[in-house]
Amino acid sequence: MPHVTLSEIEEAARRIAGRVRRTPVDLSPSLSALAGVPVFLKHEHRQITGAFKLRGATNALLQLSPDERAKGVVATSTGNHGRALAHAAAAEGVRCIVCMSSLVPANKLEAIKALGAEIRIIGRSQDEAQIEVERLIAEDGMTGLPPFDHPHIVAGQGTIGLEIVEDVPDAATVLVPLSGGGLIAGIAVAAKTLRPDIRILGLSMRSGAAMAASLDAGHPVEVEELPTLADSLGGGIGLANAWTFETVRALVDDIVLLDEAEIAAGIRHVYEMEREIVEGAAAVGVAALLAGKVAPTGPTVALLSGRNIAMELHRRIINGADGLEETD
């Protein structure tokens, strides 16, 4: 099974030090009281670009050769990876093109443009956008740095696992948002190598959960990409997935799926009780605790993965909307 190693994750931590934030972990009194065990929040939404993706993008970009840098980088994204790659590329003077579907929220498009990257909107899914990425790689010689299925991306995201184990050494369970698997694969390798008894749970939305469907099928499958409050968790895992699928299958203990109302409740709780603004994808761990879909038996860490939600949508959720259909 190809997967990154703890040493590669530790090397990534040294490589990206000073270029990304080491985000804090804080005890949540409200969630601890609810769960009956200490519950901590890992504040990765406070990362420089507003999401964890900067770790993997920076780690990958810093390992490009001079020739690869000269020809530029390209990727698909549901928003946060594109923003992270644009930030990392701008810092190194590298051209960056981000290909996205029409489902990506406008606020995420504008944030990527503001960092100087070129944007191409292709179709209504990441799989369709990936066709343009492949063309740019083949015809223009650009280097593809995908959102998750790449060893340097996985190793960069795995640095979060190192920090969690260091900050909460007795953690029994870690709740991780799950999409293509780069985040949870890296965290699982780091955490389980250091603490083999730790439980890693993946959280995703019920609408179009590609990794969950692929694990059920026993191999990567395509799913219909649907509108969801957890838009950062949308998209497929790639039928030719080479890194994250097998690692997730081997190391992730369980997957929990949430409906839109539960995700909305998670966003509201984080705002009202923790005084933090997060996007739907970041709220899934909290949502699972609130819904009683996770029953922790020891110290638990919920990862708040990003904050890049459209503020109008956030206001409507806070005011009681339970899904995208109520914001139109």
Rank of each mutant, 00 (worst) to 15 (best):
S102M: 07
S204G: 15
G158P: 02
E222A: 11
A171P: 12
L178I: 07
A321Q: 01
A89P: 13
S77T: 15
M205P: 14
A172V: 05
G323T: 09
I309A: 06
G235Y: 08
T5P: 09
L201I: 15
L34M: 12
G234V: 05
A230M: 00
V294R: 05
L324I: 15
P24H: 11
I164G: 07
K113M: 06
P66R: 12
R55E: 06
E260I: 02
G298K: 11
G292M: 00
Q157E: 14
L239S: 06
E11V: 10
E279P: 08
S30I: 02
L194F: 10
G285F: 08
L203Q: 00
Q126T: 13
E260A: 03
F245A: 03
G285C: 09
S32K: 12
N241Y: 07
E279M: 08
F245S: 00
A12R: 01
L201C: 00
E92W: 09
G161F: 06
A310R: 04
E118M: 04
A288M: 07
L175A: 07
I184L: 00
A242S: 15
L145Y: 01
R307M: 07
A288H: 10
E44P: 10
V94K: 03
A138V: 02
F148L: 03
A12V: 01
A213S: 13
T327W: 02
E163H: 11
T58Q: 05
I317R: 08
D216N: 09
E132K: 11
E274M: 09
G298V: 13
L304H: 09
A283P: 10
V4S: 06
V165A: 13
G182Y: 05
H219C: 08
E325Y: 07
V20L: 00
I97F: 10
A114C: 10
G280H: 12
E110Q: 14
A217S: 11
